[in-house]
């Protein structure tokens, strides 16, 4: 499966942060499906605005990690791609050919 160059969160997805859970729950109103993401995955999803590239998302994520704790950029990029692939599988971002104009 090829990942979109400019990942974009699907429209109408509603994020709900439940106090004390340290997780985000996303709800897709069309079918009522809900998904739980840890805060790192949730921040990646929020960066998927259809304008940022996957590389840029990985760089922003690396910048947000405390100095000295971040793995190398290639590892972060691989991890971000793996998470984006999951997002595509679960319909949280548009697949390569699906994004609206």
């Amino acid at each position: 499966m090829s990942l979109p160059e400019l990942p974009e969160k699907v429209g109408n997805l509603i994020g709900e942060e439940l106090e004390g859970l340290n997780e985000m729950i996303y709800v897709r109103p069309e079918d009522g499906a809900s998904f739980s993401l840890n805060m790192t995955a949730a921040s990646i999803l929020e960066l998927c605005d259809g304008k940022r590239s996957r590389v840029e998302i990985a760089r922003l994520l690396a910048d947000a990690l405390p100095a000295g704790t971040a793995p190398d950029q290639a590892k972060i990029s691989d991890d971000v791609d793996a998470i984006l692939a999951n997002f595509v599988d679960y319909g949280l971002i548009y697949a390569d050919a699906e994004a609206p104009d």
Partner: peptide, 27 residues
Amino acid sequence: LRSQALMELAEEMHHKLPVQERLRELH
């Protein structure tokens, strides 16, 4: 996990509320 249980339980509420509202109520 609590989050997983809440999501599954939200589908078992008898009231016709938006899913995010169900999650909030249950939490």
